[in-house]
Design a protein around this nucleic acid. Structure first.
Length: 289
DNA sequence: AAACAGGCCTAAA
DNA sequence: TTTAGGCCTGTT
């Protein structure tokens, strides 16, 4: 049971389970949140979100209950019973999925803007996270709408219309390389309604995946990520190199993804995060020794 | 310094 | 239908 109380300008949430800001914002589903002194800060839904954790409580800074109900409750998926979904996967205690679920218990799938997710994951291909973030940041600072908060200027993610109106050279200038023409094609098709993002809500995940793959530079992986993180297709199961690795390692006979149910995407995130970041942490350990 | 990074495209069997 | 190279760029 979540309880919400105002504390000065901030909002305090207690009783929230299965939610860790660090795991949620660092698990790779989004690229625009940065930690500053334990507080995760980023722009989403055209507004600035600052959220931290202390003494088992969540604190959303500079937020009213109304704003939470209108925007962040849904964005953070705090309106969904994660205990039940988590329990379902954690029950696979004998398999990796069970261990991965325990390890990534604090992950929630954010409900990001569809266009932003699509565009971001086009940029992510054959690329590393620091550079992905750098490019997206440059894109927002150059062409997003400025919004001001506490004397600091932040930027929204530029609309498809804005990007479609740019020249290829303007995109190349952001150092996105061969992805520039992909981003541009996506923006153009979206603006022309050749790809109507509003239709996706009524499509099956599979159909939606094929639909998005009509965009030059969008394949199954990018499409699945966009669907899972930007279009509430909770059963989308993006297979990237890490997931491929974890599947090969622990499910040599194959894993039936359909049997993971309508929240397969969360299972994917558990597995991805387990394989990707557990390995990272082990390496960091080795360096210290 | 060569390989690699959270894929996809194109050409060729 | 599956498989091999190439691709922008920045880092190690």
């Amino acid at each position: 049971m979540i309880s919400i109380t105002a504390r000065g300008e901030d909002l305090v949430l207690s009783g929230v389970s299965c939610f860790s800001p660090r795991q949620t914002f660092d698990c790779g589903q989004c690229f625009r949140f940065e930690e500053k002194d334990g507080v995760f800060e980023g722009v989403a839904k055209g507004k600035l979100l600052r959220i931290g954790e202390a003494d088992g409580e969540l604190i959303i800074y500079g937020c009213t209950e109304e704003e939470f109900r209108d925007t962040w409750e849904s964005f953070l998926s705090l309106d969904t019973d994660y205990d039940a979904i988590f329990a379902e996967y954690a029950a696979e205690s004998a398999s990796v999925l069970g261990r991965a679920a325990e390890y990534g218990r604090g992950i929630r799938i954010l409900r990001q803007d569809g266009w932003e997710a699509l565009c971001s994951f086009i940029i992510s291909q054959n690329n590393n996270i620091p550079r992905i973030k750098k490019i997206i940041n440059a894109l927002c600072e150059s062409y997003g709408k400025p919004i001001e908060s506490n004397g600091t200027v932040y930027h929204t993610f530029p609309s498809a219309e804005r990007i479609a109106a740019l020249s290829l050279d303007q995109l190349y200038a952001l150092r996105m390389g061969f992805r520039a023409k992909y981003v541009h094609d996506a923006a153009r098709k979206v603006v022309d309604k050749e790809i109507d993002l509003d239709l996706i809500a009524d499509m099956s995940t599979e159909d939606a995946c094929r639909y998005l793959c009509r965009i030059h530079g969008v394949g199954p992986k990018v499409a699945s990520c966009a669907l899972l993180f930007g279009f509430e297709k909770t059963d989308a199961f993006p297979i990237d190199v890490w997931v491929k690795r974890v599947l090969a390692k622990y499910y040599p006979d194959g894993l039936d993804i359909a049997c993971l149910g309508k929240h397969a995407g969360l299972a994917q995130q558990y597995l991805f995060y387990y394989e990707r970041y557990l390995g990272d942490n082990e390496k960091k350990q080795e360096k210290r020794n």
